[in-house]
């Protein structure tokens, strides 16, 4: 005796009917249109990284790693990239890099404005928060099928799946960063007659920048972890190497692809972490604008407690 003896809910049937019977026939052109900008950006990145010589890419990454993180990281970058080239996975690595950058770019474009929006309204945050929870907890394999149905197979659908998976942290962290800006600073800005937009640009965003960068780092890492899964629906790069290695039980190939992913992940992670937590090992900031990040860190440590 169990409840299913009394009533069986054909949940899978409903979902099938909804996706196949409603979404796909009615919204296919819309979803096709959505992937156009994704494709464009991806082509641009992919073409660029295919065109730039391997040594130039390596040197640029090493330089950035040196300025943002430190000398050790620069050396690791050079050694890692040379190793990738020597195991003959450079083109695939660059494709993966282009995919990651495309996903992260779109995550930023969607996530930061969304984060600002939900930081400004408790109602919006109440609505968005469960959606983010679902996005992060639903196994990515679950939405691969509807994505294939709606977008087809290929690079762009893979990137769209990656965006869905990697978007939540940057929204969460932007929201958190803006909400954590000291209340009296916002009051001060308003007291001098600033509009909401002026307060946002002059005060809230610069002060939330470190938290937002930490969110960007997490988004990037999530995007890296989607590389292999996205390859299942036709995205190329290192994920494809791993998948084909897996399919043919070619341990060596799968491992090589995996090592490539790990090296790329380490380099990107350390660089973005360096941006989010300046001062950790780096002697000079990369850009003038990051100077401000150093200052805000000092101030928070030195600022008197709010307690009266």
């Amino acid at each position: 005796m169990s409840p299913s003896d009394l009533l069986v809910i054909p949940f899978d049937g409903w979902v099938n009917a909804f996706v196949r019977g409603f979404l796909v026939p009615n919204f296919r052109p819309f979803f096709r249109a959505v992937q156009v900008p994704v494709n464009e950006v991806l082509q641009a990145f992919d073409g660029f990284f295919a065109w730039v010589p391997m040594l130039v890419v390596t040197l640029v990454f090493a330089f950035v790693a040196w300025r943002v993180v430190g000398r050790t990281m620069a050396i690791i970058t050079v050694v890692g990239f040379v190793f990738i080239d020597m195991i003959q996975l450079w083109p695939e690595t660059m494709t993966t890099l282009a995919m990651i950058l495309t996903s992260v770019l779109f995550c930023t474009l969607i996530g930061i404005p969304a984060g600002i929006l939900v930081a400004g309204s408790n109602m919006a945050w109440k609505v968005v928060r469960p959606i983010l929870d679902i996005m992060q907890t639903v196994p990515s394999f679950v939405y691969l099928v509807p994505i294939v149905m709606l977008f087809g197979v290929g690079m762009a659908p893979g990137i769209i799946a990656t965006i869905i998976f990697a978007l939540p942290p940057i929204i969460r962290m932007t929201n958190l960063g803006i909400r954590n800006v000291r209340e009296d600073l916002i009051e001060a800005s308003e007291a001098f007659g600033a509009t909401r937009t002026q307060t946002l640009i002059e005060v809230q965003l610069p002060l939330a920048m470190r938290t937002i960068m930490a969110g960007l780092n997490q988004t990037l890492m999530l995007a890296m972890s989607m590389v292999v899964i996205a390859a299942l629906i036709g995205a190329g790069g290192l994920g494809l190497i791993v998948n084909t290695g897996l399919g043919r039980l070619n341990v060596g190939q799968a491992t090589a692809g995996g090592v490539g992913i790990v090296i790329l992940a380490i380099v990107l992670d350390r660089i973005t972490q360096g941006l989010a937590e300046p001062g950790s090992g780096s002697k000079k900031p990369l850009l003038g604008s990051f100077k401000s990040l150093f200052r805000s860190q000092d101030i928070e440590a030195a600022a008197p407690d709010k307690a009266v």
Binding site: L185, E187, E190, A191, G193, E202, L207, R295, I299, P304
Partner: peptide, 30 residues
């Protein structure tokens, strides 16, 4: 607020990411 009345805060409420002169000029910038 821009013309007639300004405020000085208990915990200073200076913008930590702006220089002293940028802080002072904030009302004018706005």
């Amino acid at each position: 607020r821009r013309r007639e009345i300004t405020m000085v805060f208990q915990h200073f409420a200076l913008f930590p990411h702006k220089t002293v002169v940028e802080n002072v000029a904030y009302g004018l910038k706005v």
